[in-house]
Simulated scan of single mutants.
Amino acid sequence: MPEITIGRFRGGFCVYWKEQGKRRRYQLKARSAKEAEAEALDVYQRQATAAAAATVTDLWHLYLGERSGRPVAMTMRYTGKPILKHFGALRADQIDTQTCRAYTKNRTKEGVKPGTIWTELGHLSTVLNWAKKQRRIEHVPHIERPSKPAPKDRYLTQPEIDCLLAAPAGPHIKLAIRLMFSTAARVSAILELTWDRVDFERNQIDLRKSATGPRKGRAVVPMNEGLRQALLSARQAALSDHVVEWAGQPIKSITRGFASAAQAAGLRDVSPHVLRHTSAVHMAEAGIPMGEISQFMGHSNTTVTERVYARFSPDHLRRAAQALDFTRDKNVS
C-alpha cells in the first residue's frame, strides 16, 4: 500500500497518493480531520479494488443493482446479454474503437439492425459513465456506435385511429389504447398508472410513477372528455389500484392483445409506440406550439420535439417559403 496523504482542497479535505509515478487525488466529503482519515482509507481501498477487478460484467451488474425496479433495468437485462458476451471480461481501459467495431460487425452478421446495435452500445456507454462518476474507473473510453437510423415515420391517420378504436379487443386493451392516444404516453407508463394519480376533480393524469421515480417521457397531462368518460366507467369496475388491469391483477405486457386489435383493424406495422408518435403528429398538425407538445410528451427540452415534429406543423417554414416566392406580384410605388 502506498503512502496516502490528507490535504486541503477547494475549502475541504482531499486524499492523494502516487501510483505508477502518477498522483491520484480525490475530494473528500469529511468536515473534520478525524473524519477525513477514515474516509481517506475507504477511498483508497475502493479505488484499489476497482482498479484490480472492475470488468464490464462487474460494472454492469452494479449499475443494474442501483437501478433495480426501474424499466431501464429490465431493458438492460436483455441488451446486457450480447454486450457482456463481447465486452464482459474486459476492463474499461481495454476497450477501444476496434473492440467496438468488432462488436458492430459481429452483431450485423447475426442480422441485428443498426438501431438495436446503437442502443446496446449506448447502454455500455451509460454504465461506463456511471462507473466514472462513482469513481470505480478512472477513464471512460470512447464507445463508437453505428450511425443512429432515422426514426420510423409511421403514424396513424384519423380513419386508421377510428378503425383501431372500434376494433374488437378486451376491455383492458381498449382502455390502454385510449389512454395512449389521449396522453401520448409510453405503454410502460400506462401499465404502471394507478388510480391515485388520476385526478377527476382537476381532470389531470400524473404519469410520473413517484417523486423519485423515472421522469423521462412522463408528464402531468389533462384528460379530455372522451378519456374522462372511459376512465369513469373503468373506475366503477376496478378491482385493483392499477388503471389497466385484468382480473384484478396488474398487466406486464399488452403486446399480443394490442397486435390482435391492430390486425382486426386491418393495420400493419403498428406498435404501441406508434400511438405515442401519432398523438404528437396530430397535435403538431393542429398547430399546437412545439413548447406545449414538448411538455405533453414529457421531453426535457423542445429540441427533440422540434427535430421530429416541427415539419408536421402547418406553419413550419411557411414564412421562409413565402420569402422565396419570387414570382409574386410586387407593389410598385
Rank of each mutant, 00 (worst) to 15 (best):
A261Q: 03
R256D: 11
G248T: 07
S271R: 15
G257H: 10
G217F: 05
M223E: 02
S233H: 11
R268T: 15
A237D: 12
L239A: 15
A265G: 06
V243Y: 11
A219H: 13
M223F: 13
G257D: 03
A238G: 08
Q229G: 04
V244E: 02
A219S: 15
P222K: 12
R268N: 14
S240F: 03
H242N: 14
V243N: 09
H242G: 01
A264V: 00
R256K: 15
S260G: 11
R235P: 00
R235Q: 12
A259S: 14
V221S: 10
V270S: 07
R256L: 13
R218I: 09
L239P: 00
S271F: 10
A262I: 06
L239F: 01
I251P: 09
E245Y: 02
G266L: 11
D241I: 02
S240T: 01
Q229A: 14
N224V: 02
Q249S: 07
R235Y: 09
G266A: 07
T255R: 15
L239T: 06
L267E: 04
A264F: 05
K252S: 13
A238Y: 05
V243K: 11
G226C: 08
K252F: 06
A259M: 06
R215Q: 11
P222E: 06
S271M: 13
I251W: 08
S271Q: 09
T255Y: 14
A238N: 03
F258Y: 10
R218T: 02
S233V: 13
R228S: 05
P250V: 00
R215T: 07
P222Y: 09
G217R: 03
P222S: 13
G217D: 04
V270H: 02
S271D: 10
G226M: 01
E225C: 02
E225K: 10
P250M: 01
A237I: 11
K216H: 05
V270G: 05
L227A: 06
R218H: 08
Q263D: 13
P250W: 00
D241M: 05
Q229V: 01
I254K: 07
R218C: 12
A259C: 01
N224M: 10
G217W: 01
R256G: 07
A230P: 03
R215H: 09
L227T: 02
A264T: 00
R268P: 00
D241W: 03
A230T: 00
A264G: 03
V270I: 13
V270L: 09
E245Q: 15
L232F: 05
V270Y: 04
E245F: 04
I254R: 08
V221M: 10
R268C: 11
A265P: 03
R235A: 12
A265L: 08
S253W: 02
S253Q: 12
I254C: 08
P250K: 04
A262R: 09
A238R: 14
P250S: 02
R218W: 01
F258D: 00
A264Y: 02
F258S: 07
G248E: 06
A219G: 12
D241N: 13
S271Y: 15
F258V: 01
A264R: 09
Q229N: 09
R215S: 12
S253I: 04
D269K: 15
R218E: 12
R268V: 14
R235L: 05
V220W: 12
R235D: 00
A265M: 08
V270W: 07
A247R: 15
N224D: 14
I254S: 00
Q229H: 03
R215D: 08
I251F: 04
S233I: 11
S233R: 15
V244R: 06
S253A: 12
